Structures are given as structure tokens and as C-alpha cells.
Simulated scan of single mutants.
Amino acid sequence: MQQIKKQIVTDESMRPIAVLIDYEDWQAIEKILETYQQHNVAPSLASYAGVLSLSIDPLEYQQQIREEWT
């Protein structure tokens, strides 16, 4: 893994609020992220439609659970 030089920016209370990195390091990170996104595209939610089958109506289940606590 490539070593990245960074500077941590803090507020008056010494809490970290930002990180500064060299522009060349940023360009390398962008290339890595581009490659990752091209190969690991997440499927849309539509691809899961109809995959899940429920044995009970969700509202009925919610009512049953709530009745257990009363």
C-alpha cells in the first residue's frame, strides 16, 4: 500500500475536522476509486423485487409485537 502524507486540521478544541493530502496522492486515490467503482457496481434494488416472500403481513406482525409489550 502506498504511503500517504497527510495533515490533520483541528478546530479550537483540537477535534479533527479535515485532512490535507498532496494533490498527487489525491489523484492516485481517485484512480483507485474509479477502478473500484467500475468493477463493483452495486445492483439496483429492483433486482431484488420478488425475491423475498413473507409468511405474514408486515402490519400484522407489527401489531403482534406491539401487543407483546403491552
Rank of each mutant, 00 (worst) to 15 (best):
M1Q: 15
M1W: 00
Q2P: 01
Q3D: 14
I4N: 04
I4S: 02
I4P: 02
I4E: 03
I4L: 08
K5V: 07
K6L: 00
K6M: 05
K6A: 07
K6R: 03
Q7T: 06
Q7V: 10
Q7P: 04
I8F: 08
I8L: 09
I8M: 05
I8H: 03
V9C: 03
V9Q: 04
V9S: 04
V9R: 05
T10M: 11
T10K: 12
D11K: 02
D11A: 04
D11R: 03
D11L: 02
E12Q: 15
E12G: 10
S13L: 15
S13N: 14
S13T: 11
M14T: 07
M14W: 08
M14H: 12
R15D: 10
R15A: 10
R15Y: 11
P16E: 05
P16N: 01
I17Y: 07
V19G: 06
V19E: 07
L20E: 11
I21N: 00
I21Q: 01
D22K: 14
D22G: 06
Y23C: 09
Y23P: 05
D25H: 04
D25V: 04
D25Y: 04
D25K: 01
W26M: 12
W26R: 00
Q27C: 02
A28N: 01
A28G: 01
I29N: 03
I29V: 07
E30N: 13
E30V: 06
E30R: 07
K31N: 11
K31T: 11
K31W: 05
K31Q: 13
K31E: 14
I32F: 14
L33E: 13
L33G: 02
E34N: 12
E34L: 14
E34Q: 12
E34M: 07
Y36M: 06
Y36N: 05
Y36D: 04
Q37N: 15
Q37T: 11
Q37M: 10
Q38D: 09
N40C: 11
V41K: 15
V41W: 08
